[in-house]
C-alpha cells in the first residue's frame, strides 16, 4: 500500500476558465504532504484532480499527467470510479450518511461495492474505527445513527469510512476547518498515525497545522483575482517554514501577505 504520485504539467479548467496552471510535483508515499495558500488559489481544485473528483462538476477538465506509481490516472480507458477506490477523500465538513448507522457508515464503501460477508464487514469496521481513533468512543453504539456524533467524532467517522476501503492515498480537504481545537488535535494525531500506511495529502489554511503534521509543504498562490493558481514552491516542511526560496512564500507564512 501507499503509492507515489507524480504530477507533471497539470492545467485545470472550469469551462473556459483556467483555475490551476502548470503544476508539477512529486508526492512521496508514506508521508504527509500539505498544500497551503490563500483562498481561491486552486489548492482544493488541484487536490480534487488527484482522484478525478473535479469531474463531478460539469465543464471541469484537465490537461497534463497524474501518475500513480507507473499508471496514468488520465489515460484513456481509466475509470474514475476505479481511481476513487484507490485514492480516497475526506471533506471539509463531516458528511456521514444520515440514513445509516455508525457501523453502516464505516462499512458503506464495502457494502455499496457488493461485500456481504457479515464477518468480514464486522472485522473491517472494527479495524477502521481503531485506525481512526474512534473505536473506544462508539463501540457500544455502533447501531446508532452516525449523524448523532459530535462534529469531531463525525469527521473521524468519515476518516474511518475512507480507510475502510483500503485506499493507497488519502486526500483531505481542510479536514479540521469545521472543528474545535481538541477535535483538531485528535485528527492531527490520527494523520500522524495514518502516514505509516497511506500516502496522505492535506489542504489546510492553518499554517501551524501544516508545520505540525506534514513532511512536505507546497505553497500555492495566484497572481491576481481571475488569474489561474500556480505552485510557487514545494519542499521539506522545515525548510519552507524556516528558509523559503521565494519571497511570496515567506510573506504568506509570516502573515505579511498582500
Amino acid at each position: 500500500m501507499a503509492k507515489r504520485i507524480e504530477v507533471s504539467g497539470l492545467n485545470v479548467y472550469y469551462g473556459d476558465f483556467k483555475a490551476v496552471e502548470d503544476v508539477s510535483m512529486t508526492i512521496e508515499p508514506r508521508s504527509v504532504t500539505a498544500f497551503i495558500g490563500p483562498s481561491g488559489c486552486g489548492k482544493s481544485t488541484y487536490l480534487r484532480t488527484l482522484n478525478r473528483m473535479h469531474e463531478v462538476i460539469p465543464g471541469a477538465r484537465v490537461e497534463g499527467k497524474v501518475m500513480l506509481d507507473q499508471q496514468d490516472l488520465y489515460a484513456s480507458g481509466v475509470d474514475p470510479v476505479a481511481v476513487r477506490r484507490v485514492v480516497g477523500m475526506v471533506f471539509q465538513r463531516p458528511n456521514p450518511f444520515p440514513t445509516m448507522s455508525i457501523f453502516d457508515n464505516v462499512a458503506s464503501g464495502l457494502k455499496l461495492n457488493g461485500v456481504k460477508d457479515r464477518k468480514k464487514l464486522t472485522e473491517v469496521v472494527e479495524r477502521s474505527l481503531h485506525g481512526a481513533n474512534l473505536w473506544n468512543e462508539v463501540k457500544d453504539r455502533l447501531d446508532k445513527p452516525g449523524a448523532g456524533l459530535s462534529g469531531g467524532q463525525q469527521q473521524r467517522l468519515c476518516i474511518a469510512r475512507a480507510i475502510a476501503v483500503e485506499p493507497e492515498v488519502i486526500l483531505m480537504d481542510e479536514p479540521c476547518s469545521a472543528l474545535d481545537p481538541i477535535s483538531t488535535l485528535a485528527i492531527e494525531d490520527l494523520i500522524e498515525k495514518l502516514k505509516d500506511r497511506f500516502t496522505v495529502v492535506i489542504v489546510t489554511h492553518n499554517m501551524q497545522q501544516a508545520a505540525r503534521v506534514s513532511d512536505q509543504t507546497a505553497f500555492f498562490n495566484l497572481a491576481a483575482t481571475g488569474k489561474p493558481g500556480r505552485l510557487i514552491e514545494m519542499g521539506p516542511t522545515k525548510q519552507i517554514f524556516s528558509n523559503p526560496n521565494e519571497k511570496a512564500t515567506e510573506d504568506y507564512i509570516t502573515g505579511r501577505f498582500g
Binding site: 481511481v83 461495492n113 468519515c158
Partner: peptide
Amino acid sequence: PDELREASYALGVPKWKTILKV
C-alpha cells in the same frame, strides 16, 4: 446535499448505486 453524493463517489461507489443507496 451534494456533499453526500461526493462522499459516496470518493469511496469508489458508481453513480447509479450512489443514487439508489444514498
